[in-house]
Design a protein around this nucleic acid. Sequence first.
DNA 1: AGATCATCTTGACAGCGTTCAGATGAATTG
DNA 2: CAATTCATCTGAACGCTGTCAAGATGATCT
Lengths: 213, 213
Amino acid sequence: MTDTLPPETDAPENRPYHHGDLRRALIEAARVIIVRDGAQALSLRGVAREAGVSPAAPYHHFKDKQELVLAVGKLGFEELGEAMEVEINRIGGTVNDRITAIGVAYVLFARDNPALYRLMYDCSRNMESLPPEMHEKEHSAYAIVRNAMIEAGRASADNDIDVELATVAAWCVAHGIAEMGGFAQFAPLKQALGGELNFYRELLLRSGNFQPR
Amino acid sequence: MTDTLPPETDAPENRPYHHGDLRRALIEAARVIIVRDGAQALSLRGVAREAGVSPAAPYHHFKDKQELVLAVGKLGFEELGEAMEVEINRIGGTVNDRITAIGVAYVLFARDNPALYRLMYDCSRNMESLPPEMHEKEHSAYAIVRNAMIEAGRASADNDIDVELATVAAWCVAHGIAEMGGFAQFAPLKQALGGELNFYRELLLRSGNFQPR
DNA sequence: AGATCATCTTGACAGCGTTCAGATGAATTG
DNA sequence: CAATTCATCTGAACGCTGTCAAGATGATCT
C-alpha cells in the first residue's frame, strides 16, 4: 500500500481537501434521493451513504437533519425562480400572457419535482420567517411574481399592502394548483380539456371563483 | 390474585370486549397526538402507548402505520365537511356570501388544525383515487362546494365538466390559502387589513389575479 | 518540524416500524 | 356445562433511524 487513498467514490470531481466539498455533496445527494425515492425515503444515513461518508460525517456541516433538508429546500427555491424566469423570457407576449406563463411554470415545476416541491413548502412553513434573501433577491421567485403583479396593474406600485396582497393571492392559487393538480382523480378532467397544460391554464384563469360578479 | 384485571388505563368507557373498541381508540389517540404534538411526532408505538396497549396491538386493526394515518385523515375530512355545513347554516345571506363563508370555514379549519389538515392532504395524495364516499356522500366537503358552485351559477348544472372545473378551481384556491395563510411572514399584512379574517376573505376574493380583465 | 484545528470514523444509545410465536379469553359448538 | 375455535393482545426480536461522544486523520499555520 503505497498510497492511502480516500475510499473510492463515484464523485466526478477531484477532492482538493480532506474529503472535498462535502457540504455541497451532501445537499446534492439529498436532492438526488428525494427526487428518485421520495421525501419519505430521505434519511441522513442514506445521504451519508450516497456521498460515501460515515453516518456521523454530516454533523460537521449541518447541526440537524432538518438543517440539511432546509438547504435542499433553499436550493429548490432558486431552481424554481430560474424556471420561472426562463419561461418569462421564452414567452414574451402581453403581460397577461406572461403572468399565466409564470403560473404555468410554477405548476409544472411542482409537477416535475413533486417531492422536492413538497419539501420546499415544508421548509417555508417550518421557518418562523423565510430567509430574507428569498424576498430580497432581485431574481427570487417572490420578486418575479411581485414585479409581474405591478407590471400588469393588478396592484399599484405605490401601495405596498396592495402589492403584497396581490402577490400572496397569486401565490396561494399557484400553490393550490401545484399541490392538487397532480391528483389522479383529475385525469378525466384533464383529458376533457384537451391536455394537462390546458387544465392548469384553465384553473389559473378560473381561480376567481370566489369573486362575486 | 382473585382477578386478572386488564392493565389500568384511563379510558373512560367500560371495556365490553377483550380490550374494548381498540380500533376507534387508536384513531382517537393518533388524532390527539397529531393535534397536540404535530404530525412529525406521530409514531405507531406512541399511539399504542397512548391507548395503553402493546406496540404490536395496532397491527390487528391496521395493516400499516399508513393505514392508521389514513383513517385519521378520513375522520378529518368528515369534520371539515361538518364545519363547512355549520358555517353555511350560520350565515344564510346571498349565495356569494355563503360561498365566501365556505371558503373562510375551510381556511379556518386548516388554521385551527394545521397538522391534521396537512395529514389530510397527504392522505388525498397518497391514495391513487380518493375513497369514493368522499365524492359521493351527500354532505361530503366536496359535495358542499360543488353544490355551492352550481347554485351560484359559476357553472351550469348540465355541464359536468364545467361543474367539476369550477369546484376544483375553488378548492385549489382554498387549499393554497389554507396552507400558506398561516405563515408568520404575513402577520403584518393581516394587521394592515384589520385582522386575520379580513386577510383570508381578501385573498379568497382576490384570487382571480391570473384572470385577464 | 511541530502544533493546531477542522474534518471524518468508530462505536454506542434510544426509539422507530414491523414481524412472529405464543398467551388470553370471549364466542361458538357439542 | 365443557371443549374448541378464533379474534385479539403481548413479548421478544430484527434492522433501521437520528444523534452524540471519543478518537483518528491530515491539511494548514507558525
